[in-house]
């Protein structure tokens, strides 16, 4: 009896296929399947009950989910834009520094080295309404107030965004600085001779060159911020009364606190749309910006 041999290409790819299947494919299929069941972690048998699109219908009509969705988009937009502007400003200033620039670049990156959990704890302390740094500072300056930084819905979102921006502005600063280093000197000199003021040089020459770098940073950061969880969880836990609930705090609460994993997985699949939309948007912009400065091909 001769055994049929598997084709060589398949054998050679097999290790990779096994690894990808175990790490990505099976969890993906499992989570997709479970989003069509009322799967509760506490009652494993519910995994075998098919409810069709029930979970999705529930989510689409759930005001809490859409509130978290909208808040995440808003948070993403504000945090990304502010980080970009601040990062651009820092990069432009650091680029002008001639002495000790290396050290400065390293220092800029310090916030990136902290775990987001620790950043969360730090800012939870800073914004604490009783013993926090900010309120104490305000009181020492004579303002007799105790602002509820982490309790009031708007202030709490501000505090979280502040922590997020503190932690991640340096990503933009470093990427934009890399862009500044890559700009050829000649067109800038030509612009000077052509009559540009420093601002006009920036607007017409530097900025078009930087746009690809800005969009790369935007793409990376949009994926990061869209899955913001740790800082929020530590600082407010999504509360008080869900006023700082973002997609991932909602999902983790549904999946692990309420143990409704089927529903949580369905939420996950809906919110992936958000990341996909942002990624496509920024990639389109990136391609256009690259084409503009003749970087394509």
């Amino acid at each position: 009896m001769t055994r049929r041999r598997l084709p060589e290409w398949f054998l050679l790819l097999l290790p990779a296929i096994i690894v990808i299947a175990a790490v990505v494919l099976i969890p993906l299929i499992f989570s997709l399947y479970s989003s069509f069941t009322p799967y509760k972690l506490t009652r494993p048998s519910t995994l075998w009950k098919w409810v069709g699109t029930y979970n999705y219908e529930k989510i689409l009509t759930d005001a809490k989910f859409w509130a978290a969705f909208g808040r995440t988009v808003l948070f993403l937009t504000i945090a990304l834009n502010l980080e970009m502007l601040l990062g651009l400003g820092i990069a432009l200033m650091v680029n002008k520094v001639t002495w000790g620039q290396r050290t400065l670049r390293t220092i800029i990156m310090f916030p990136m080295m902290f775990s987001p959990i620790l950043v969360g704890f730090q800012f939870k302390f800073i914004f604490n309404d009783n013993i926090g740094l900010v309120n104490n500072a305000l009181q020492s300056m004579g303002f007799n107030v105790a602002l509820p930084w982490l309790v009031d819905g708007k202030l709490a979102m501000f505090s979280i965004a502040f922590a997020e921006i503190w932690m991640s502005t340096s990503v933009f600063a470093i990427l934009i600085l890399a862009g500044l280093f890559a700009i050829p000197r000649d067109p800038l000199e030509a612009a000077k001779v052509d009559g540009c003021t420093p601002f006009q040089s920036f607007r017409h020459i530097t900025l078009p060159f930087l746009m690809p770098f800005i969009y790369i940073a935007m793409t990376i950061r949009s994926l990061d911020v869209a899955r913001a969880y740790d800082i929020v969880q530590i600082m407010t836990g999504g509360g008080p009364a869900r006023r700082t609930e973002l997609l991932w705090t909602l999902m983790s609460r549904t999946g692990y606190v309420d143990a409704r994993m089927g529903l949580a997985n369905a939420m996950g699949y809906v919110s992936i749309i958000l990341s996909v939309v942002f990624t496509i948007y920024f990639f389109r912009k990136l391609t256009a910006a690259r084409a503009q400065i003749g970087m394509e091909g």
């Binding site: 000649d186 000199e189 030509a190 001779v193």
Partner: peptide
Amino acid sequence: PRDRNISMVFQNYALYPH
């Protein structure tokens, strides 16, 4: 440079690529 009313041709052309 902008107040000197000069124009310059550079070795590497220095055209604006965009």
